[in-house]
Simulated scan of single mutants.
Amino acid sequence: MIELDTTDRQILRALVQDATQSAGAIGRALGLSQPAAWRRIKRLRDAGILKTQRLDLDKEALGFGVTVFLGLKLATKGRVSLADFERAVSAIPEVQTVEHILGLYDYRLRVVARDISDFERVLRRRIMTLPGVGDVEANVLLSEERRPGPIG
Protein backbone atom coordinates (compact mmCIF):
# COMPACT_ATOMS: atom_id res chain seq x y z
CA MET A 1 0.00 0.00 0.00
CA ILE A 2 1.28 3.47 -0.84
CA GLU A 3 1.22 6.46 1.46
CA LEU A 4 -1.39 9.04 0.43
CA ASP A 5 -0.68 12.69 1.03
CA THR A 6 -3.18 15.57 1.05
CA THR A 7 -2.85 16.12 -2.71
CA ASP A 8 -3.51 12.44 -3.44
CA ARG A 9 -6.67 12.61 -1.33
CA GLN A 10 -7.79 15.78 -3.12
CA ILE A 11 -7.30 14.03 -6.47
CA LEU A 12 -9.35 11.07 -5.27
CA ARG A 13 -12.16 13.36 -4.09
CA ALA A 14 -12.15 15.14 -7.46
CA LEU A 15 -12.31 11.83 -9.34
CA VAL A 16 -15.11 10.52 -7.11
CA GLN A 17 -17.14 13.60 -8.08
CA ASP A 18 -16.39 13.20 -11.81
CA ALA A 19 -14.10 10.44 -13.05
CA THR A 20 -14.11 11.89 -16.57
CA GLN A 21 -12.07 14.94 -15.56
CA SER A 22 -8.77 15.29 -17.36
CA ALA A 23 -5.47 15.43 -15.51
CA GLY A 24 -5.17 19.01 -16.73
CA ALA A 25 -8.52 20.01 -15.19
CA ILE A 26 -7.66 18.32 -11.91
CA GLY A 27 -4.21 19.90 -11.93
CA ARG A 28 -5.68 23.39 -12.51
CA ALA A 29 -8.16 22.91 -9.66
CA LEU A 30 -5.41 21.79 -7.27
CA GLY A 31 -2.60 24.08 -8.40
CA LEU A 32 -0.60 21.32 -10.13
CA SER A 33 0.73 21.09 -13.66
CA GLN A 34 -0.99 18.63 -16.00
CA PRO A 35 2.03 16.28 -16.03
CA ALA A 36 2.26 16.30 -12.22
CA ALA A 37 -1.46 15.52 -11.87
CA TRP A 38 -1.19 12.79 -14.53
CA ARG A 39 1.78 11.17 -12.75
CA ARG A 40 -0.11 11.13 -9.45
CA ILE A 41 -3.24 9.65 -11.07
CA LYS A 42 -1.10 7.00 -12.81
CA ARG A 43 0.58 6.15 -9.48
CA LEU A 44 -2.85 5.73 -7.85
CA ARG A 45 -3.94 3.43 -10.71
CA ASP A 46 -0.72 1.41 -10.63
CA ALA A 47 -1.10 0.95 -6.85
CA GLY A 48 -4.63 -0.43 -7.37
CA ILE A 49 -6.35 2.42 -5.52
CA LEU A 50 -8.15 3.52 -8.69
CA LYS A 51 -9.65 0.30 -9.99
CA THR A 52 -12.11 1.26 -12.72
CA GLN A 53 -14.07 4.09 -14.25
CA ARG A 54 -17.78 3.45 -14.41
CA LEU A 55 -20.73 5.14 -15.99
CA ASP A 56 -23.55 6.11 -13.66
CA LEU A 57 -26.66 5.41 -15.74
CA ASP A 58 -30.03 6.94 -14.89
CA LYS A 59 -32.08 3.76 -14.41
CA GLU A 60 -35.41 5.62 -14.46
CA ALA A 61 -34.58 7.33 -17.76
CA LEU A 62 -33.84 3.86 -19.15
CA GLY A 63 -37.24 2.61 -17.98
CA PHE A 64 -36.19 0.85 -14.77
CA GLY A 65 -38.24 2.57 -12.07
CA VAL A 66 -37.94 -0.02 -9.29
CA THR A 67 -34.88 -1.18 -7.38
CA VAL A 68 -35.24 -4.06 -4.94
CA PHE A 69 -32.68 -5.48 -2.53
CA LEU A 70 -33.10 -9.22 -2.02
CA GLY A 71 -31.78 -11.11 0.97
CA LEU A 72 -31.37 -14.66 -0.28
CA LYS A 73 -30.62 -17.80 1.70
CA LEU A 74 -29.52 -20.96 -0.03
CA ALA A 75 -31.58 -23.98 1.00
CA THR A 76 -28.99 -26.61 0.09
CA LYS A 77 -25.54 -25.16 0.68
CA GLY A 78 -23.77 -28.51 0.48
CA ARG A 79 -25.39 -29.53 -2.81
CA VAL A 80 -24.99 -26.28 -4.73
CA SER A 81 -21.59 -24.83 -5.51
CA LEU A 82 -21.42 -21.18 -4.46
CA ALA A 83 -19.47 -20.39 -7.63
CA ASP A 84 -22.17 -22.05 -9.78
CA PHE A 85 -24.90 -20.08 -7.98
CA GLU A 86 -22.99 -16.81 -8.33
CA ARG A 87 -22.37 -17.43 -12.03
CA ALA A 88 -26.06 -18.25 -12.64
CA VAL A 89 -27.45 -15.28 -10.70
CA SER A 90 -24.91 -12.90 -12.27
CA ALA A 91 -26.17 -13.92 -15.72
CA ILE A 92 -29.60 -12.41 -14.98
CA PRO A 93 -29.50 -8.93 -16.59
CA GLU A 94 -31.75 -7.31 -13.97
CA VAL A 95 -29.40 -8.35 -11.15
CA GLN A 96 -27.03 -5.40 -10.74
CA THR A 97 -24.93 -6.64 -7.82
CA VAL A 98 -24.36 -9.98 -6.10
CA GLU A 99 -22.85 -9.77 -2.62
CA HIS A 100 -21.92 -12.84 -0.59
CA ILE A 101 -22.61 -11.78 2.99
CA LEU A 102 -22.43 -13.05 6.56
CA GLY A 103 -25.60 -12.97 8.62
CA LEU A 104 -29.23 -14.00 8.27
CA TYR A 105 -28.90 -14.36 4.48
CA ASP A 106 -26.15 -15.81 2.31
CA TYR A 107 -26.46 -13.25 -0.50
CA ARG A 108 -27.71 -9.74 -1.06
CA LEU A 109 -28.81 -8.89 -4.59
CA ARG A 110 -29.61 -5.51 -6.09
CA VAL A 111 -32.29 -6.02 -8.74
CA VAL A 112 -33.75 -3.41 -11.10
CA ALA A 113 -37.09 -3.76 -12.87
CA ARG A 114 -39.46 -1.63 -14.90
CA ASP A 115 -42.16 -1.82 -12.21
CA ILE A 116 -43.34 -4.11 -9.41
CA SER A 117 -45.03 -6.57 -11.76
CA ASP A 118 -41.83 -6.77 -13.83
CA PHE A 119 -39.89 -7.41 -10.61
CA GLU A 120 -42.33 -10.19 -9.70
CA ARG A 121 -41.71 -11.78 -13.12
CA VAL A 122 -37.92 -11.62 -12.60
CA LEU A 123 -38.26 -13.05 -9.10
CA ARG A 124 -40.59 -15.92 -10.05
CA ARG A 125 -39.15 -16.91 -13.43
CA ARG A 126 -35.46 -16.22 -13.00
CA ILE A 127 -34.32 -15.93 -9.40
CA MET A 128 -36.57 -18.47 -7.64
CA THR A 129 -35.82 -21.09 -10.31
CA LEU A 130 -32.08 -21.03 -9.60
CA PRO A 131 -30.80 -24.19 -7.95
CA GLY A 132 -30.51 -24.04 -4.18
CA VAL A 133 -32.60 -20.90 -3.60
CA GLY A 134 -34.36 -21.03 -0.24
CA ASP A 135 -35.67 -18.06 1.76
CA VAL A 136 -35.92 -14.67 0.07
CA GLU A 137 -36.67 -11.28 1.58
CA ALA A 138 -37.36 -8.27 -0.64
CA ASN A 139 -36.84 -4.61 0.29
CA VAL A 140 -37.93 -1.96 -2.21
CA LEU A 141 -35.64 1.07 -2.49
CA LEU A 142 -37.53 4.31 -1.82
CA SER A 143 -34.67 6.78 -2.19
CA GLU A 144 -30.90 6.73 -2.34
CA GLU A 145 -28.16 9.13 -1.35
CA ARG A 146 -24.77 8.23 -2.73
CA ARG A 147 -21.75 8.97 -0.62
CA PRO A 148 -18.16 8.40 -1.65
CA GLY A 149 -16.20 5.84 0.32
CA PRO A 150 -13.66 6.81 2.94
CA ILE A 151 -10.72 8.72 1.49
CA GLY A 152 -9.24 9.93 4.74
Rank of each mutant, 00 (worst) to 15 (best):
V89Q: 03
L102S: 02
E86R: 12
A91E: 12
E120R: 14
L123R: 13
S81H: 07
I92W: 09
Y105K: 02
G103N: 06
V80K: 07
V98F: 04
Y105R: 01
D115M: 07
V89L: 03
D84G: 06
S81L: 05
T97F: 08
A113P: 02
Y105D: 04
H100G: 08
V122Q: 15
A91N: 10
A91G: 12
V95A: 10
R121G: 04
E94P: 11
D118Y: 12
F119H: 11
S90L: 04
A88Q: 04
R114Y: 15
E94A: 14
V80R: 06
H100P: 01
I116Y: 05
E86D: 12
V112F: 06
E99P: 13
S117G: 02
E99I: 14
E99F: 08
A83E: 11
E99L: 11
S117R: 03
Y105N: 06
I116A: 07
R121T: 10
G103E: 04
E99Q: 11
R108V: 14
L104T: 15
P93Q: 08
V112R: 07
R114N: 10
Q96A: 15
R121D: 04
S90N: 13
F119R: 14
R108T: 13
L104M: 09
R108M: 04
R87L: 09
V95K: 04
A113L: 02
A88C: 02
F119S: 12
S81G: 04
L104N: 06
R108A: 11
I92L: 11
Y107E: 04
I116N: 05
R108E: 05
A83Q: 08
L104V: 15
G103R: 00
A88K: 10
V89F: 00
L82W: 09
V122I: 15
S117I: 00
D118H: 15
E86M: 07
V112K: 02
A83C: 07
V80T: 09
E120N: 11
V95F: 06
R108G: 10
A91V: 09
F119N: 13
D115L: 07
S90Y: 01
I92M: 09
L104P: 07
R110G: 11
Q96D: 10
S117K: 00
A113G: 03
Y107M: 06
S90H: 09
S90K: 05
A83P: 11
L82N: 10
D84R: 05
V89S: 01
V111A: 02
T97W: 13
I116T: 04
A91Q: 12
E94R: 10
S90W: 03
I116G: 01
A113K: 00
P93C: 06
D84N: 01
A91K: 14
A113T: 01
Q96I: 15
R121I: 03
V111M: 05
A113D: 00
D84W: 03
G103Y: 00
E99T: 14
L123M: 14
V111R: 04
Q96R: 15
Y107Q: 05
D106E: 02
I101V: 10
E120Y: 12
S90D: 02
D84C: 07
T97K: 15
I101Q: 07
V98N: 10
